[in-house]
């Protein structure tokens, strides 16, 4: 391909984009919507995995004493737990302290704060572990001390619960993402095909005056690239903005959502790359059908 052709291709592509504005807008919007959905799916699964990771980093195990536990049992347990090599620190929380914490947590909501008495909240022991991966083993030991599974609160439990939930969630998202990708490729190549169909006469003329296939195709592919780029960029900006808004909102509440779950720049590049790829592939294959003159 001669270098002086590129100026011609670019001029043609830009001119065509302008002349077929409606078709371009259709293709761009379709790309943007599809890329946005893809981005949302990626966000949700990344955040879920981030939450699981965060919970896994938690080194605290809480063991609640049964209602009827005597002070003697409690002391015995405390002293034996303090001997565990995995435990770096252990704190006993009496019923009174538990109530104080409760009141402190809900100090701005007096109704809730005053709704419980000291007899409701159980005493507990809080263990800080050296390594979060030991939590399962320590929980096992605590069970042999006489704690019921239901009286223990340790990360593995949460992780198991989350895993059970997110396992399905992530799979559903993956399936949805693949379906949306397929749908978006079909939609976009259809939008591009429509715009090419509207210009099949132009292609016919090009072929008749002796334009090579590459020559006919290149402006269309460039056009697809530009459409994909614009659509995907719009979508990527929206997705990244929505992500940071969500992270801010979640962090000011209770979620253990971290902004580090997602590399916003990488996500943006991925989405734009996907959009461009769809645009280029879509127009390449759509033009091919009309080249057989």
């Amino acid at each position: 391909m001669r270098s002086n052709n590129w100026g011609f291709f670019l001029r043609e592509a830009v001119k065509n984009l302008r002349l077929n504005l409606l078709m371009s807008v259709t293709a761009i919007t379709t790309t943007a919507v599809c890329v946005m959905i893809l981005g949302a799916a990626l966000l949700v699964s990344a955040h879920l995995q981030g939450i699981i990771r965060n919970v896994g980093q938690d080194v605290t195990i809480t063991a609640f004493f049964p209602e009827n536990a005597s002070q003697e049992t409690i002391d015995d347990t405390l002293s034996s737990v303090q001997g565990y090599p995995e435990v770096s620190e252990s704190t006993y929380v009496s019923r009174e302290e538990a109530l104080d914490r409760w009141k402190e947590t809900f100090s701005d909501q007096p109704d809730i704060a005053s709704s419980v008495g000291s007899d409701v909240l159980p005493a507990s022991i809080e263990l800080q572990l050296n390594d979060p991966r030991d939590s399962g083993a320590v929980a096992e030991k605590l069970r042999s001390e006489g704690f019921e599974e239901g009286d223990l609160n340790y990360p593995q439990q949460t992780i198991d619960n989350l895993n059970w939930f997110t396992g399905y969630m992530v799979w559903a998202l993956r399936v949805a993402t693949i379906l949306f990708l397929i749908a978006s490729i079909l939609l976009i190549s259809n939008a591009i095909r429509l715009s090419i169909f509207a210009r099949r006469k132009e292609i016919e003329v090009m072929k008749l005056v002796g334009a090579s296939d590459t020559f006919v195709r290149t402006p269309f592919v460039l056009e697809g690239l530009v459409q994909g780029l614009i659509g995907a960029t719009l979508a990527a900006v929206v997705v990244v903005w929505a992500n940071s808004a969500f992270v801010n909102w979640a962090q000011s509440y209770l979620f253990s959502v971290s902004s580090e779950s997602i590399n916003a720049f990488g996500l943006m590049l991925t989405l734009i790359a996907v959009g461009v790829l769809i645009g280029v592939a879509g127009s390449y294959f759509s033009v091919r059908r009309f080249l057989k003159v």
């Binding site: 001669r2 002086n4 052709n5 100026g7 011609f8 003329v205 090009m206 005056v209 002796g210 334009a211 020559f215």
Partner: peptide, 11 residues
């Protein structure tokens, strides 16, 4: 001009 451009002739 199009017919010339298509065959890659100089501007």
């Amino acid at each position: 001009a199009y017919a010339m451009e298509v065959t890659g002739q100089k501007r």
